[in-house]
Design a protein around this nucleic acid. Structure first.
Lengths: 257, 257
DNA sequence: CGCAGCATTGACCTTCCTCAATAAGAGTGG
DNA sequence: CCACTCTTATTGAGGAAGGTCAATGCTGCG
């Protein structure tokens, strides 16, 4: 439970410099990405927008009182909760197109930390809400995204509360596959994990060592193959699902046939 | 990890009978309860509303495909996720005034189960959304409630991932206090817990025995006092917060001075 | 090529779970 | 009102999963 508290201090939490007028290009990419439920007036949205560049390892410092919604445009990021004195729980990983809600008033101190260099669009929740009051479609978009985030958070709570270490690690790989997986020639899926073993451990409520041992076990069993620090290839999809506790994995099978 | 699977089967999950026209009275109470962000046209809402009576122990059976939002009018309920073969995780407890989002498409099977007899108003999410498209205030209400639920779910994930058994049990009492606590003559707070030890355990990702031991330890230490199965009196608020891991509990103290 | 950080592996220990027995509540019917 | 019974809670002893500590091996970068 002890952790080198100094390592984080060396990369101090900074409130990322904001470039008040969000670049036209970033707004374009935002609207393109959330197209399925298109935002009617990206121009209007533009006025309340601030763009952030978040360098690898740096965090948006979000103490109590800050209340905003972020859009991740490029890069990969983690939403981290700090538990005194030196524990931390990663609540979610985020990739381009994701919306991150950071409401004020939570009991814990949260920060969005860049795993790789990121571009982010940020809104004060109040600003976004006042826009949404006049724009039901924007309001619905926010609502759907929030409910989606709630669903994923519930899945995480279930895993943290009632799953074993092997199940959690298998779950993790399965949840990452559709987001960052690439199918190769032999139809095997390869993941290039942007996060460290520590990140994975902090996300699953485990230790680095336990995560490493589970990777080792699956490697030995021929379920996965790893090369370097970040590459994981899934060799036996069925076995992986069994390890995640998906009994019979009926749903997935049906859709694969 | 073994559990008497038969005990639940005897009280089968039923789709509660719906009384198509929601009673005027229940709608009145709903609008009264969510008054802070009042719904402009409760009459309109009424058309899409179904009222449920959920007897103690019975559940709304919500298999994949169902997608609805529930309002709890009276009683106490738990949102339960079932993890095959016989584990379960309680995601949240609910009390009158609460809104429960039950989106379709989650990976786990969820059910809202009544801890005591409940009255519930239910909406198909699609219906509610189509109403909200024409009504920004309703949309905002939904959005704020969803973000609120997300915040509480994150707190639960943090507790399940990174807190010890004593911390979780203390956390539980602290989280229940503002919702169901009653201050008595000596300004001590008394909780009448509607849920069993099993419910508490399933909510905290622990076993009944561990929860019971933690109650025992706090009783011995003079932090709490219990009488009967459900009554808990908080004697030492400061110590309880310390046990919950709220280091120094600075925020709370300041607001108490 | 060498260094610093990260990942892996092993030995041991703590926490919490499991199994089992006992006790206390809360209904029920006499 | 009390005895009876069923359920739920408490308490104890032992075991397993995962955490902690420590040593070694990669890997990617200057």
């Amino acid at each position: 439970m002890s952790r080198d508290a100094g390592s984080d201090t060396s990369a101090p939490m900074i409130r990322a410099r904001s470039h008040p007028p969000a670049s036209e290009e970033l707004l374009q990419r935002l609207t393109a990405m959330i197209a399925p439920a298109r935002i009617p007036g990206a121009r209007v949205l533009g006025a309340a927008t601030q763009s952030f560049a978040l360098a690898r390892g740096s965090s948006t410092f979000l103490a109590a009182g800050c209340d905003c919604v972020l859009f991740l445009i490029t890069g990969a990021a983690k939403l981290v909760a700090h538990v005194p004195p030196d524990r931390e729980q990663i609540l979610s990983f985020h990739f381009p197109g994701d919306m991150v809600f950071l409401p004020h008033g939570g009991t814990h101190s949260l920060a969005l930390t860049a795993i790789s260099d990121c571009e982010v669009l940020g809104f004060e929740t109040a600003d976004l809400f006042s826009l949404a009051t006049a724009d039901a479609q924007l309001a619905m978009l926010l609502c759907q995204r929030a409910i989606g985030a709630l669903g994923r958070c519930r899945d995480k709570a279930i895993a943290l509360g009632r799953k074993t270490a092997p199940e959690r690690v298998a779950d993790f790989l399965l949840s990452m596959a559709p987001r960052i997986g690439v199918k190769d020639a032999r139809a095997e899926m390869t993941l290039l994990l942007p996060m460290s073993r520590r990140d994975i451990a902090d996300s699953l409520g485990l230790t680095i060592e336990t995560v490493s041992r589970q990777f080792g076990a699956m490697r030995t069993a021929g379920v996965i193959e790893t090369s370097g620090r970040s590459e994981v290839r899934i060799l036996d999809w069925t076995d992986l699902q069994a390890r995640a506790g998906k009994s019979f994995a009926a749903d997935q099978f049906i859709s694969q046939i």
